[in-house]
Simulated scan of single mutants.
Amino acid sequence: MASQGDRARDALLDAAEELFARNGIDAVSNRRIVEHAGAANHSAVAYHFGGRDGLLRALVERHHEEMSRRRRELMEQLGESPNIHELVTARLRPLIELLDSLPKPSWRAQFMSQISAVPSAVAVAKEVIGDANLPDDLRFINGAVDGIPESVLRGRAYLLGSMVVGVCADQEAKMNEDANKGNWEQVGRFLIDAAAGMIGAPVTDPDGAVRYPNVPLI
């Protein structure tokens, strides 16, 4: 059973995630988060998280280990020579499963879409998730795609992360407004198909790869 302190901490995380998702990270004060969480102590963010950066770190870390564990599980289930579609599925399905499991309305994907707009949030996310330099959980794709230079693959990985977060944020917002706006299983299948096609697409100009900014991937 969760303690009163754990419940208060979760309430602050819920409040911050919603307010950041709806208004942007820099537009929301700690005091507003505390009030939205129904807490009386205006220093609650500092008390529970040590300050603003600690709160952002806790939000980024939220569900991260759960998704990492699920990704490892899916990777272990693949055969010796998985194709691109299977590899991309192992990467993206845990995110879709998480979004599908959240209470409605949910704000996770919309919060994630706000991170890249705030340097302090990017810095925190890089510490937790890693940067965009072809992290280990995407590096396996490199050996599965013949004739695609690593610079192109890294650029596509960046585009993939931006695409997935953007689509999921838009879908989440629509689902919050109307329960009949599709479902996460359909969204997941569409994104996996699109991502696999993007990763394995022909290369017409190896030198024309996107020089992606150094931001964390999903």
Rank of each mutant, 00 (worst) to 15 (best):
E35Y: 00
R91T: 12
G50D: 12
L13E: 12
G208M: 03
N23K: 14
A39G: 07
S120T: 15
I148S: 08
K126H: 03
V165G: 03
L12Y: 09
R189E: 15
R93L: 08
R91C: 02
F49G: 12
G161Y: 02
V145D: 08
R72P: 00
Y47N: 11
M1L: 06
V124L: 06
V128H: 09
L74C: 03
D193Y: 01
S29D: 12
V122S: 11
L217E: 08
M112C: 09
S43R: 12
Q4L: 11
E127I: 04
R22E: 15
L56M: 12
E150T: 14
P149V: 06
D137N: 08
A144Y: 07
Y158H: 15
L160G: 01
G188Q: 06
V215P: 01
F49N: 14
A196I: 11
A44T: 03
E65G: 02
S162H: 06
E35R: 13
N41R: 10
R108M: 08
A179T: 10
I218R: 10
V152G: 11
A11W: 00
N41V: 03
L87I: 05
V118L: 02
R62P: 06
A125W: 05
R52N: 10
G197Q: 12
S101A: 04
L102W: 06
D207R: 11
N30R: 14
F20L: 10
A196Y: 07
T89D: 15
I84C: 14
P105T: 07
V203W: 12
G51N: 08
G208C: 05
G166I: 01
H63T: 01
S68D: 13
D14C: 00
V145T: 14
D53V: 09
A169C: 02
D207T: 13
N23Y: 11
R69G: 03
G147I: 07
R9T: 09
W107R: 10
A39L: 09
P82H: 08
P82Y: 04
R139W: 08
N183P: 01
V203T: 15
L191R: 10
H85L: 07
N180I: 04
E73I: 02
L78N: 06
V167I: 13
F49K: 13
A58W: 07
M175T: 05
E97Q: 07
G38D: 04
V164N: 03
E61M: 08
V203S: 13
R57N: 02
K104P: 00
A125F: 04
F20A: 09
D6P: 01
P213M: 05
G5I: 08
R156M: 05
V128L: 05
I115F: 05
K104Q: 13
G54M: 09
A195V: 14
L92P: 05
R156A: 04
E97K: 03
M198D: 13
E76Q: 07
A90E: 00
G155H: 13
Q110N: 09
A179Y: 05
M67Y: 00
S120L: 06
R154M: 08
S3E: 10
L98G: 01
S29G: 10
G208V: 04
L92H: 06
R7G: 02
A121P: 12
L12F: 07
D26L: 11
L13Q: 15
G200C: 00
S68F: 01
